[in-house]
Design a protein around this nucleic acid. Structure first.
Lengths: 199, 199, 199, 199
DNA sequence: ACTGGCGGGACACCCCGTTCCT
DNA sequence: AGGAACGGGGTGTCCCGCCAGT
């Protein structure tokens, strides 16, 4: 029964449905059908708002990249506060919260999505590259504040943090790793870079 | 035209075909049909040797895990030789050679495969977990040889090396990263753990 | 190229296509593909309207059973008119017209269909049982009208008419038997039952 | 393990296996594989003894036609003995014993078989035509013996007996009709043809 | 002569992204 | 906006006929 009543922000509804599916069924469960079903919306609605299903996936990822950027900003704002390890542990935990991990899996399993995102993320794996950039900025700032030694390479450290974090979180298929495990990993990576550290 | 000739080693032929497809078309290109076509073999041959297509994929991954174990053994044999950074750089390069990376992408994109491999790889991402174990063993041995400081945590270092390496190689969608980039990453991770290093 | 046009009456279109195939190629020619091809319709349409291909075949038979019931009603309406032999000859000719015969062959060659029709036709061969019932009713009515002797057994006569008719029509693989041959058979069966007959 | 030992009459073994399958699973269950499996013989054996699988089916039917001819001969030998109804009832029961019925179903469901048998059975349904001929001969002989009235048409009666019998037996999917039901049908068909019968 | 793997075609069922009439 | 239809493809299964080995 066509209602003709415009949905209240169908776009957002669809993207949220996509997130729920991603969390529940993983990247393989994301199909145009499952999304419209989950959103309780007609199949045509998706194509009215996204030219292509790949376009929908790209939007899903871009949405999350936006979230990653917020995390990065928050992290940057904490430069100088608390401890570096704590700040990084919190950031990684936020970046790899279940939905974040699912988005990364989505990106890794659909090369078309990476290709379409090449315009905004010319190198690296989209979501992770943005995350690395945020952490790099943070570490560089901490370096300027003198809490990271001059000889450290923020970019390499960021890459390590992201890569190791990804592995740690992705390994726990169902759930999440202990916070202590994350902290341990972060410590082992930044241990040589922290100022005031004497070997 | 039926030949009646029993295939030399159908299993190996099929698995090699699967590897070629994985390299050429990525995980999405792997279908039971594409495999038998690529192997130039009848459709039924695959199901004679593998109960299910998922079973074939699992075998493909297990095959590679076998290769990973060989890489690990070779790496272990080099403990004490050359430099740690060189040994690790070579090992990572072998682990993430195009086929290795493609296998990891396969594992990440098909959760059923991970699930079926849970019996032999109870935690972590199958291929990467085995790689981390090999590197952990190597680093522990170097530690016993005195080339890695006592305070270092081989397991954490191995996780970092694997995770960061994965990120580095996976970022270059088509090709490979420079060897120097790999070495740089390895150096930045093990820098604090090498004995004789003075900060 | 998706048309988006809802088919007028997809169900009827599919059933008619099935009838054409049955006539042209016999029961063995009926496959889900041949039906959708013949109907010039997408593969999925059949499965949207019939849960299973067997379900489609059952519907095909039930459709014809509906037609058989119409023939039975018409025959009954002619009780008392014309001659019994003429009425029966016409009825048999209609029941075993090419499509009818093909449906019977379909039923005989797929026991699953018979099994699924057991709910509505608990005994006998589906289509033929319904035909026999119709003829039995007709003969019983003629008996009440006095054109069939009291001692006759309508049910046995009907079974004979159906069975013999089936044999006669089924014997002519391609075409149809002469009308005179049908009449002859009918006469030979009812000859002893007609009132006013003196041996 | 190839033995090279010639099977003792593989042909007969295969045909018997075919009969068992026909009885157990119906015509649809007859495949080259099921036959060789049931005969516990390699797949190739069938093709050594029969050019084609259809050839095997034809042989299966011809075998049974031979049995039908024996039944006919026996029936003919009983002309003048016992009662006509008893003789015919027995003959029909033998013709439509489970295997006979299964063979008829096989013939009806595979038009290729009918086509290949057209050389020996130019018209009608192979097995049934031979049965009708046998009954016709018997009835004609009884007619000459004066137990069937001169005005009766043996051929029409035979067709009726066969057709009606087929319907009666085929209706009981699993089992057999009561002997009394068969006798009743036979009586109702020949009732007007028996000499000494007074209406 | 028998054995058993293989070729290759087909089938039912299912799912996908997409189109477009109602 | 709703939802039927489209066309392509995928998997597992089956089937028949072939023929290199033993």
């Amino acid at each position: 029964v066509p209602t003709g009543i415009a949905l209240r922000d169908a776009r957002a509804q669809l993207l949220e449905a996509g997130q729920r599916i991603l969390l529940r069924d993983g990247p393989a469960g994301l199909t145009s059908r499952s999304v419209t079903d989950e959103a309780e919306v007609a199949k045509g609605v998706l194509h009215r708002h996204f030219a292509t299903f790949d376009g929908f996936l790209v939007a899903l990822v871009q949405d999350w990249i936006g979230h990653v950027n917020i995390i990065s900003t928050d992290l940057l704002a904490r430069a100088g506060d608390a401890t570096i390890v704590t700040n990084l542990t919190n950031a990684l935990t936020e970046l790899f919260e279940p939905l974040g991990l699912a988005i990364v899996r989505l990106v890794l399993s659909r090369s078309e999505v990476i290709r379409e995102l090449r315009s905004t993320t010319p190198r690296g794996i989209p979501v992770l590259t943005e995350g690395a950039k945020g952490i790099t900025n943070y570490l560089a700032t901490e370096q300027q504040l003198g809490r990271i030694v001059r000889s450290a390479a923020p970019q390499s450290l960021a890459l390590s943090l992201l890569g190791t974090g990804h592995l740690l979180f992705a390994g726990e298929l169902g759930g999440l790793p202990d916070e202590s495990a994350v902290r341990e990993i972060v410590e082992s990576i930044v241990v040589g870079a922290e100022a005031g550290f004497v070997s």
